[in-house]
């Protein structure tokens, strides 16, 4: 009872935040909050087996898969929240509200009767897990077997979809060098390695851009993801310091010290 009234607002707020969150990673984390809360609600409702499954399968496996794919696709691919389809957002909100309202009205009109509770059933079946198992392997055994086929099909399908056939032989190092030189000749792409972060800067951590000879930061030395996140260290002050060093150096060279 207390658990519900505590968790329900949390879950609703988290859900709304998830829909409005700008970054996909935040969405995933908010979803995890909802799912764990749900697991607790399952436990509250005499469903310890589902509680475990919810945590292990959903929060553990499915959400991790989401995060994994998010990392593969790129964290910076968060979409702008500007709507492109005309009227889509308004219509969606209106329809969603209407839908929710209708369900609530329907529920408030329905007479559910007294709650039977699962304690009797659990006692009779010698526990929740055994009760579910007894049903699963008798009444629902055919459906259960079919789900196994479904899982295998899904696994195979994912493999087939993710698999990329190599159509050309893998380029050798020599060919890669040749290609790099050709690119340089035709479009002027720099053939060498990208500058490391932190070069000529005060710090050599990954968020510190390298400084070019004229003292400006090199965009190329910072990861695309960090640029997208806006966590690049500001090095404008370092240039001042640099000038100070330069002055000192010149003074030393000129023999003023």
């Amino acid at each position: 009872m207390i658990a519900f009234w505590v968790l329900a607002p949390v879950m609703v707020v988290a859900a709304v935040a998830m829909v409005m969150a700008r970054k996909a990673v935040h969405c995933a984390l908010l979803l995890a909050v909802i799912m764990i809360s749900l697991a607790v609600l399952y436990a509250v409702q005499n469903a310890p087996f589902l509680f475990a499954v919810q945590i292990i399968v959903y929060t553990g496996a499915v959400l991790m898969l989401f995060l994994f794919v998010l990392m593969l696709v790129g964290v910076d691919s968060s979409d702008s929240l500007v709507e492109t389809l005309r009227g889509q957002r308004v219509a969606a909100v209106v329809l969603g509200l209407l839908f929710g309202l209708l369900v609530v009205v329907a529920l408030s009109q329905a007479t559910l009767g007294t709650v039977v509770g699962l304690s009797a059933a659990s006692e009779q079946a010698d526990g929740n897990v055994k009760g579910i198992a007894a049903l699963l392997f008798s009444t629902y055994v055919f459906a259960f077997e079919v789900t196994s086929a479904l899982l295998i099909t899904a696994a195979l399908g994912a493999m087939v979809l993710a698999h990329r056939e190599r159509l050309t032989p893998k380029p050798t190092q020599r060919e890669m060098v040749a290609q790099r030189m050709r690119d340089y000749a035709t479009s002027g792409v720099h053939p060498g390695a990208l500058p490391n972060p932190g070069s000529f800067a005060r710090h050599n951590s990954v968020d510190t851009p390298a400084l070019l000879p004229d003292g400006t930061p090199s965009e190329l030395s910072i990861s695309r993801v960090m640029r997208a996140r806006g966590t690049v260290r500001d090095v404008s002050r370092d240039r001042l310091t640099e000038r100070g060093i330069e002055t000192e150096t010149r003074q030393i060279e000129e023999g003023e010290r």
Binding site: F49, V53, V57, G113, I132, T147, L151, G157
Partner: peptide, 29 residues
């Protein structure tokens, strides 16, 4: 499930989880 006092609802929820897992795998692929 709790309302009716039997485990059929929990079984249904279980199957939904299985299907959702399969769906997520294929969908993400």
């Amino acid at each position: 499930s709790r309302q009716h006092g039997n485990f059929d609802g929990q079984i249904a929820a279980f199957f939904v989880m299985v299907v959702a897992a399969a769906e997520v795998v294929v969908g993400l692929a």
